[in-house]
Write a protein that binds this DNA or RNA. Structure first.
Lengths: 223, 223
DNA sequence: ACCAATAGATAGCAGCACTATCGACAGTGG
DNA sequence: CCACTGTCGATAGTGCTGCTATCTATTGGT
């Protein structure tokens, strides 16, 4: 198929497709002439993958390139593909490194949960950075809630992996599954969390501010 | 205090502080002379809040402005502050709108969970967009896992709100708590999810690919 | 034969988050 | 009193990212 058809089927502008090929997000199409190439169904699904990572996952182009490289390299095992996807996720790159105390807190949490984890896991630094932000705001009560969050995270992780193992025999397919699941999973959990937050906020009827009847007046705006 | 002290205490360059004041992320300091102003402790904590939202939460400046405006406006109730924080989170703005079928699936999930939620909730569109990305990749099995994710999301949401109600009497303090909790909570859950993923992947020993012994050879790299 | 479409290369552009520079002045040590 | 460092506010500039526009040589379709 030609570029216009690929563009139409993926909802992506031809110029953008060319750009993706240049950037290595999309493999070059097979040449059939001086100015004719032939895109395949493989390109369609790869383009869908790229757009999902960019649009829904919010990944920058460079990260997407790293991820698809891991998917395409048959020498990369599923665990490493998952690692690549994890490292690709937008994770506090401009931020200062996490403090040792927060790192220690996270590591203690990991131990308390009975988790086994290597040092390189980016989640550790990310969680520690969150704790740092929290204490910088003068709050400390988050530590008590950590096990609750950790338990929820484990439930999510089990659901994640339950979706991968079924077709673990097909390496390419499951590599894609791992990537999409890891990246889009963050967005899914975040979205569901927003819905659940509103539900819980409405359900537990917070005595909508016990002692300060001011400012409750403004007409209810959808949260 | 003068700008250099504020810069030092917050780890932010003076030029950046000036920029934030211009952009309305930080209130202007009180003038004490032609070229002398006096920053307060309030500025320190506000700057910490802004940096946390930017560095850890990854929010763009414009979103941070909207969030702090909601926090500062005493006429904005806590529910609306939470709504502002939710809408501020990076959520698929460049992406195409979610398909009706995915929206319907999310709404059915919401009903099945017994959740009550208004139309404007950005989580619905976000979750639907994730489903769209998923089906665009030719996978449909995600729907079966949705209730699992929803349950985990509710656990998280309950933990979120349990941290807010305690000091719901202090509107300003709890407004900050809501914002930081909503924004940093996403990052925290995401980080813990990465750790849990690695743990579960190692613990359940995926029979590391049942029928395809190829490509397992590369030396174990920390995922 | 004609014309729209294509490939590939290069240049340009808009947005974002800062950062650098400037001129006028203030506060402080000597 | 006076040099000198620090400060304020304003404006302009920078580096990066993610495309988009333009150009030329060529080609398939009618």
């Amino acid at each position: 198929m030609r570029i216009s058809e690929l563009a139409e089927r993926s909802g992506t502008a031809p110029a953008t497709i060319k750009f993706y090929v240049r950037e290595g997000l999309l493999p070059p199409a097979e040449k059939t002439g001086y100015n004719q190439v032939s895109y395949t169904e493989e390109h369609v699904r790869r383009l869908h993958l790229v757009r999902a990572l960019v649009d829904v996952g919010g990944l920058p182009i460079a990260r997407v390139r790293a991820v698809v490289a891991a998917v395409d390299d048959p020498g990369t095992g599923l665990q490493e593909v998952m690692g690549a996807a994890q490292r690709a996720l937008p994770g506090r790159e401009g931020a200062p490194p996490p403090s040792p105390s927060s790192l220690a807190a996270v590591e203690e949490l990991v131990r308390a949960q009975g988790w086994a984890v290597l040092d390189g896991n980016p989640g550790v630094a990310q969680a520690a950075a969150v704790l740092d932000g929290w204490v910088a705001m003068g709050r400390k009560d988050l530590f008590d809630s950590l096990p609750e969050y950790a338990r929820a995270a484990e439930v999510v992780a089990r659901a994640d992996l339950a979706r991968v193992w079924p077709d673990a025999a097909d390496r390419d397919r499951s590599a894609e599954t791992v990537v999409v699941g890891t990246v889009l999973g963050d967005a899914l959990v975040a979205g569901l969390r927003r819905i659940a937050q509103e539900h819980v906020a409405r359900a537990t009827r917070p005595t909508t501010r016990p002692a300060t009847p001011t400012a409750t007046s403004t007409p209810e705006e959808p949260s």
